[in-house]
Amino acid sequence: MKRSEWLDRDGFAAWLFLAPALLLLGIFLLFPIVYLVGLSFTTGSFTQEGLRWIGLLNYRRLLADPDFLQVIGNTLYFTIATLIPSLVIPLLLAVLLNEAIVLRGFFRSAYFIPSITSIVAVGLGFRWLFQDDGPVNGLLSKIGFATIPWLSSTVWAMPVLILLSTWKQIGFNMVVFLAGLQAIPQSRYEAAELDGANARAKFWHITLPGLRPTLVFAAVTTAIFTLRGFEQVYAITGGGPLNSTNILVYYIYQQAFALFDFGYAAAAATILLAIALILVYLQLKTWQD
């Protein structure tokens, strides 16, 4: 049998096995994205009134809306401020817990537990901790510091959300980094020790280069986690005070399910998708160059 016939048969078999996965991908991913983009060019509702095509009007409204521009700034601040500690702290913990220390298994489990807890339940716990008469302000009073109106302050409310999101992500990224560390050949460290390299030199010249693919994965997943942040805002601040903690997903929720402006919400969601793609692209370029 000719080679081309084998290729045709193998190609047909490959497409046959891929067909169920591609069908599900099209139904649950590609179709919703196309529908979302189309919806962003309409106004109206899904009732008898129906949807009406208005072109780019929703996008013009978004760019002229000061609340939306503030939400974009909040989202970028929240994402970047969560991303950096969510990579640095788990990396340091992973390097430490990769060594043979006492109770290593216990500490690994303890740090991972937050990543499997309900973010709504944790959010309610954080709201209790940081309320005006809560334990955090109580501790500040006992050690002689002035209390802080954490959740009613336009300055301090966002750091509470960032703290929660970082705490939630640390365990997952730590496990990812541990897996990456164990994939680095031990012989590299042994050779570096023979050359007289200290711990810092081994970290910068062996550990970090060896973790490059792992860092890319952790950065991308953390950025996606923060960009789709909703539960912590809903449970703790509700977007306040004065819109200072309103991030893009919560803003989309408000427009779609509180104001029922579905076309406008779809336009905001399309911009969120574009921001996510740009951030992922920049992260991949940064780590791969």
Rank of each mutant, 00 (worst) to 15 (best):
F17W: 13
L16D: 01
K2G: 05
I89K: 07
S45N: 14
I116N: 03
G55I: 09
I27Y: 05
P114E: 01
L57M: 07
P66Y: 09
I119V: 15
L57Y: 03
A14M: 13
V95Y: 07
I89L: 13
G50S: 12
L18M: 14
I101C: 05
L93N: 02
F12E: 00
V102P: 03
L51A: 05
I101V: 14
W15S: 08
S109I: 08
N58V: 14
G44E: 12
F68W: 11
V37C: 04
S115P: 07
L83G: 07
L62V: 08
D8W: 08
A81I: 06
N58Q: 10
F107A: 02
L22M: 13
F41T: 15
A110H: 01
L62T: 00
V102E: 01
S40C: 10
P114G: 06
F41N: 00
R3K: 15
L16Y: 11
L103V: 01
L96P: 01
I27G: 00
L51R: 14
G26Y: 11
L56Q: 06
G105K: 11
G11N: 08
W6P: 00
T47S: 14
V71D: 06
L76D: 02
I72F: 15
F46V: 13
A64L: 09
R52T: 07
S4R: 15
L91F: 05
P32E: 05
R3D: 05
